[in-house]
Design a protein around this nucleic acid. Structure first.
Lengths: 333, 333
DNA sequence: CTGAAAGCGCTTACAG
DNA sequence: CTGAAAGCGCTTACAG
């Protein structure tokens, strides 16, 4: 069954497609179409269930009412929660979301941008990775709204929304120190994105500020894509060989792996051994004992991102790029 | 900066746009374009970075290479994991995914289908809700590939991929019985979808098969959209008033709420009180003690769904609808 | 108050 | 071996 076109409606109503188009797009009054015609055409549209072909509309107008969302991995709960909130808010403004996961592969990320471009998406929300600077620059040169979130690219002057990882990490380490911890470990990953590296910087700074010597062997940098088994072996070694009394895990999945190791080896979390996870997760609340965690303000991040992109989409002129850093908070359990 | 069009390429190469189009679409040899011309045009395409406008292509060909994915809630880890797997596999075949969450609202679900229709998506992957039968029927009448997953609509003859919830529930209850449990409770939700209701049916059947009387007050049906606080109050009451020795939670979030209640009230899980959660979650593995859970075969579900839709998309003729029920397994912890 | 016509960037049947 | 032209379904500047 062919679907109806604007022409079919025009024929049924005995008017031109121009008139129908004006009515569909709410320009009827503007164009001084008579009320009688408007009523008649609207009636026919409703009765026939006609829906304009968005593809044709896009081709003609050059925009698609679609926002492209590029994340590292949609199945990661941080991203899926953000995606949900963004989708919800975008939807209410008539925008759809098309998403895809980069899996941290630069080639896939580049391909995605190309694909989104050829689909003429109206704007881009990107959790970027290093190496994407030029492509993003290109998008902005093409005058497309771009909002980076979660991760920033320092070499790029672009809109960015993220949490204050430095401060949150600093506070976490500080809270360990105030509990009297001396041998504080950091388990992190080896990817070179600001969002991750600043956790290490903050860790070092906090130690320095409290005159605690930095010990290289207390920092475990897990290889980004490695097997969880291997990660667990490395952690087990770390937990055993040192008189560690506190660990900050730089991501929630590292923390989860860490908890598995502790469970297996029977090492207890308690006064002698404290743990903080970066990025909260349901696991941590339910764990016995509860695991303290740094919580990113998901709602606010999503809200800010969508706000920014919508204002760019509706603005005729190029707006100034904004850098919005939201506070993350340490939930003590 | 305007992006290049096929015309620009044609002009640069000194050939017609027809020729360029044939080359882009790999029909050059078919149409016996000379090797020399092919080489020249391909060179220009690569050098200029030309990408065909997919919108124009869609308008002309009537398909979009986009698959619409409609789920209840993309931030639910079951769906986000499936989405990730589906996206991955679709991507490799040149299809993109556009997704949206229904939040179990029939109006939103209907709107989404309309929207996807007007965007001319090539196929639909839907975790449906009751009331959507007609709309889905319509899609199939329009000859669009539709795959339902997770939830089935019994009144509809459509492709469906899901797990065997009846069997998995039956086995769970059976395992309680074999442990000698007498007062087995079921905590479920009150939505009327087959996937949920059959968990109750299986519960009753297993009890009956083992001559254990069915007691209405051992079944708690939580209202679908109610506040977690309220759910927890109801559960607390349930856990106290009866000599319950086992609980099957019909969804993972119910189980999580249940675990919170147990933690708060100090009720211990152990030999006197066993728990199984339906749909696994990282929480359950890490919980002390570990929580047994029914695990749906995510990979296989995603794989089957994508397989089915791709075969439909590439097939000229209408294929027979398939019902594929995959086994879910009980992970004992 | 309303309509004819151009054009968005492609694909493809047809012609040579 | 290659191209001119129609047409996908819209929007909009222009004309009346």
């Amino acid at each position: 069954m062919k679907s109806l076109s604007i022409k079919d409606i025009a024929v049924k109503a005995g008017v031109s497609i121009t008139t129908v188009s004006f009515i569909i797009n709410g320009k009827a009054r503007d164009k001084s179409i008579s009320e009688a015609v408007i009523k008649k055409v609207e009636k026919i549209i409703v009765e026939s269930g006609y829906k304009p072909n968005q593809i044709a509309r896009s081709l003609r107008t050059g925009n698609s009412n679609i926002i492209g969302l590029i994340v590292e991995d949609i199945s990661n709960s941080f991203f899926s929660k953000i995606a949900r909130l963004i989708e919800d808010k975008a939807y209410k403004k008539g925008y759809k979301i098309i998403y895809s996961s980069t899996e941290n592969h630069i080639e896939k990320a580049k391909e995605l941008i190309t694909m989104f471009k050829s689909r003429k998406v109206d704007g881009y929300i990107i959790s970027p990775i290093k190496g994407l600077e030029e492509d993003i620059q290109q998008l902005m040169a093409d005058n497309k709204p771009v909002i980076l979130f979660d991760r920033n690219l320092p070499d790029l002057d672009a809109n960015y929304v993220g949490a204050d990882h430095f401060k949150a990490t600093y506070h976490s380490i500080e809270s360990f120190i105030k509990q009297g911890k001396k041998k504080i470990s950091l388990v992190t990953i080896d990817i070179d994105v600001q969002q991750i590296t600043e956790r290490l910087t903050a860790y070092k700074k906090a130690l320095a500020d409290y005159d605690i010597p930095y010990e290289e062997n207390l920092v475990l940098k897990v290889h980004f894509n490695q097997d969880e088994k291997e990660t667990m072996v490395q952690m087990e070694k770390l937990f055993q060989t040192e008189e560690i009394d506190a660990v900050l895990f730089a991501t929630n999945y590292l923390a989860i792996s860490g908890l598995k190791v502790l469970k297996q080896t029977g090492k207890k979390i308690g006064n002698d051994f404290s743990v903080i996870a970066y990025d909260d997760h349901e696991v941590f609340e339910l764990h016995t004992p509860g695991i303290s965690a740094v919580q990113q303000p998901l709602e606010e991040i999503a809200e800010t991102v969508i706000q920014l992109i919508l204002s760019q989409l509706s603005s005729k002129t190029k707006l100034d790029n904004q850098h919005i850093i939201l506070p993350a908070k340490l939930i003590e359990r």
